[in-house]
Design a protein around this nucleic acid. Sequence first.
DNA 1: CTGAAAGCGCTTACAG
DNA 2: CTGAAAGCGCTTACAG
Lengths: 349, 349
Amino acid sequence: MSRRPSLSDVAKRAEVSVSLVSRILSGDATVRARPETQQRVHEVAAELGYQPHGAARALRLSRAGALGLVVHEVSNPIHAEIIRGAQAAATAAGQVLLLSDAPELAANADAFAQLVGTGRIDGLMWQGSGEDYDDELVARAARQLPTVLVNSRPRAGVPALRLDDEAAAWLAVEHLIELGHRHIAYVGGRPGADLTERRYAGYVGALRDHDLSVRPEWTVEREWDAPAGHAAMAQLLAADPRPTAVFVANVVVAVGALAAAREAGVAVPEQLSVIAVHDAWFVAHGAPPLTTVRLPLDRLGAEAVQRLLSGEAGPAPAGDPATERGIVLADPPPKLLVRGSTTRPEGMR
Amino acid sequence: MSRRPSLSDVAKRAEVSVSLVSRILSGDATVRARPETQQRVHEVAAELGYQPHGAARALRLSRAGALGLVVHEVSNPIHAEIIRGAQAAATAAGQVLLLSDAPELAANADAFAQLVGTGRIDGLMWQGSGEDYDDELVARAARQLPTVLVNSRPRAGVPALRLDDEAAAWLAVEHLIELGHRHIAYVGGRPGADLTERRYAGYVGALRDHDLSVRPEWTVEREWDAPAGHAAMAQLLAADPRPTAVFVANVVVAVGALAAAREAGVAVPEQLSVIAVHDAWFVAHGAPPLTTVRLPLDRLGAEAVQRLLSGEAGPAPAGDPATERGIVLADPPPKLLVRGSTTRPEGMR
DNA sequence: CTGAAAGCGCTTACAG
DNA sequence: CTGAAAGCGCTTACAG
């Protein structure tokens, strides 16, 4: 771990100027140095293991070469996929990814300033999850650097990238209807969150499309976690009449819902079909394996990186779709993964 | 998003020198400027929203103020917990966390160089998982900056932080024995991986401690994923005699093992008890809820940050325990979480 | 076409 | 004690 070689070390050793080394190594096409000189420079650089110093470049170019990603909870498999997509895209673009945690940034102003205000990143991706503090923080970040919300509608004037949640919900409910279900309940996430609203819209759309009515007592929204799903399912199982199928707006919530059905002695899928939006590796191994609708969460991360890097994430002009409704990533489309938690309703088998 | 204010902007506005502003804002105790001057500087800085430029500081101080963390798979709940711990500790220390992906770094030399060779980070944490490429990459990184392996034994002379895997395994098997089991099988991870070896040692230790013999046909090691757990369980269920309990070295593997038992019509825990090392939120909601042994994975990440920041992670002196056997984080100790997948063996109920 | 010089925004040893 | 100056390692407009 000796001192890292600098450009001037290479220059000295190759007996040319620092400027020339910089130009040659950066592939400047206007360089006309003799081929053997160029080769020597490359050789010396390789020999010394020269690597441009990131901070020096960043300072000189006023470009950090890094992107920030803020998520709410790494352990959430949905967030993990977003991280993975962003991470891969950033790396492919020669950028480095800085990971941060939304609750922490909300609690620690220094941490927020450190991430957003010091020029360490050229752009910020913020995974939206409808928390109260999100709006203010995101708006503050957007004032300082290109920012894009991920998996959320636009908030506080900040452009957003989202998935086709409505289509995903529609597809899921359509599946239940095709199986013969007419009594389909809805379990959402946090009330008022845009994700739950859009999925609810898809649920309602599919029901209406088949002349099925929406029953308020079959609609329950609590929170984006498994305990909430547990409570929601318990509530639905007590409803009269009881639905024969439940559409759950989120796979994490569905894990809790499934557990509640099991504890209540209600067999899934025999007595109750359950389907959820988003896939996670472990639900394929559950009892029963959960039928889900997969959305391209990794592309969401990747696309956010692209936008940031292409400069489209700057202060959006009024009327820009990204800031108005959010850019919807409709490709690849939602995909139905039929597993063991859905089947025909009891009377129809 | 106008140009960020620099120290000289603050200096001009406060009518003092740049040096003095720097000293005042950094809390230099030798500063004797008039209190009102100091206050004015602070006010102007706040007014302008001054934040020191990260790259400039990094260049000047030859310190990036950032740490790198390399993991093998973000979607793995075990890795997620390590990330969380490292992330929180880094933030608390005023450092920023750079996340990268081991398989990607193995495949993309530029990405590796970008992360390790450009001075962007002051230290690197590498989550070990026994991949072939790990050794070379980690050794290469360690030649360039302070590096510490996380959740692994030392490799290639690089110091390591690990958990008390043997104690965790021992505790798990001990639990099975206390329930009355005498026929206990072992499902590991990738053969030869140090994690599986240490957990196997705990398994063997607990058995021997109770004068139970270790049967080779009840020991199966495949891979660290759910399909491997599935295959391993299928193999054990075909064994003659069949074990009454299975200790699984990893919760992800256990998810697959549980599914295999279910598919084979073997009731857990009635006909077969299953216990695993490491906890994950979703296994508490499974059927049955999985009994696990929790280890402080988040502390592993946090402790790695501490070591890197305290400078103890430099080139280790020969005979250093961190490089010889690895530092074991024994506190808090492994914790048994008894849930629904373990019970007394059939004959004893 | 190539080299010397300026300058990105800091920190700090040094001179006054 | 405070200010001016140097310098961290780059890139690039400018002069030769």
